[in-house]
């Protein structure tokens, strides 16, 4: 219940970043979105539907693009358990079924948290997650320069 309450509180990072995030939950994980999809409330059911790729469009009809870290990444596991409240292996089974039956396109896996934040920043309709920097109490999102052209070329060489 507390996680749901926390997710309803939307925190906007400072002006030049194109990412909005929920406030971090007790595990230090926050959901981040590209600013162009708005900052409306995302409930647990919404997040599960988005990360299971059932829900494909935002309210403004723009396509949802989901970015995640590898299954064995600590932050991915914390996100699954504390935000979605599912086991990472259950999510992986759902994605593999989509992929190999053609019934959906699983989220794009990226190598690092920095890259994930950068892609959410640079991609219209994107959603992902990030860890909060507890020392500064500010999201690391702000450390990422939002130069989309550089970021896209970086992604394409991945």
């Amino acid at each position: 219940m507390s996680a749901l309450f926390i997710l309803t509180t939307v925190f906007s990072s400072y002006s030049h970043a194109d990412v909005v995030s929920s406030e971090a939950n007790e595990a230090g994980v926050m959901v981040i979105r590209n600013a162009d999809v708005g900052s409306g409330e995302l409930k647990l059911a919404d997040l599960r539907a988005i990360f299971a790729v059932r829900k494909r469009r935002w309210e403004n009809k723009a396509p949802i693009k989901v970015y995640v870290l590898p299954d064995n990444h600590g932050l991915h596991q914390r996100f699954c358990k504390s935000v979605l409240k599912v086991y990472p292996y259950v999510l992986r089974e759902q994605w593999d079924r989509l992929l190999f039956s053609g019934t959906g396109i699983p989220p794009t896996t990226v190598g690092s948290e920095e890259e994930l934040i950068a892609l959410v920043n640079a991609t219209s309709g994107a959603i992902g997650y990030a860890a909060v920097d507890t020392q500064k109490g500010m999201p690391s999102i702000e450390k990422i320069p939002p130069k989309s052209s550089e970021l896209e070329s970086e992604a394409s060489t991945k």
């Binding site: 494909r56 723009a62 396509p63 949802i64 992929l99 190999f100 053609g102 019934t103 959906g104 396109i105």
Partner: peptide, 18 residues
């Protein structure tokens, strides 16, 4: 052995083949 491809033509239209 299998190869598949998915193409998201629009938010409401996907093509998939394997």
């Amino acid at each position: 052995a299998g190869i598949n491809s998915t193409w998201r033509a629009s938010p409401t239209l996907n093509f998939a083949g394997q």
